[in-house]
């Protein structure tokens, strides 16, 4: 069961990747079991969150790709600023 707000969980996931870029569709699949029963969980909302987090500098968009539906997507990687924000994650995670 999800314990983090979706946006914060995305940052958490990218932090766990340890500097390795993750495709947007992989982020969606990784969080599917935690959030899939909720109306907010969609590819569109995921992309919206990622663009917002990128704009404020917590993550970077790198290397575009086409997903299985021929949609253009980015791969994302956490920045140093983003890493610093993970200090606000609950200690018991």
């Amino acid at each position: 069961m999800a314990v983090l707000p979706l946006r914060f969980r995305i940052l958490h996931l990218l932090n766990q990747a340890d500097g390795k870029p993750i495709k947007m569709t992989e982020i969606y699949k990784a969080l599917y079991d935690e959030y899939s029963g909720e109306g907010q969980f969609s590819l569109e909302m995921m992309e919206h969150h990622l663009m917002s987090i990128k704009a404020v500098g917590l993550i970077d968009a790198v290397e575009p790709y086409f997903d299985e539906n021929k949609e253009a997507r980015y791969q994302y990687v956490i920045t140093q600023t983003g890493r610093e924000r993970t200090k606000y994650l609950p200690k018991d995670l």
């Binding site: 707000p5 109306g39 907010q40």
Partner: peptide
């Protein structure tokens, strides 16, 4: 609630940003 975000209230309040 209509947007399916109700559970985000509790989750957000438990974090420092919330």
């Amino acid at each position: 609630i209509r947007a399916g975000k109700f559970k985000e209230y509790g989750r957000s309040l438990r974090t420092k940003p919330g």
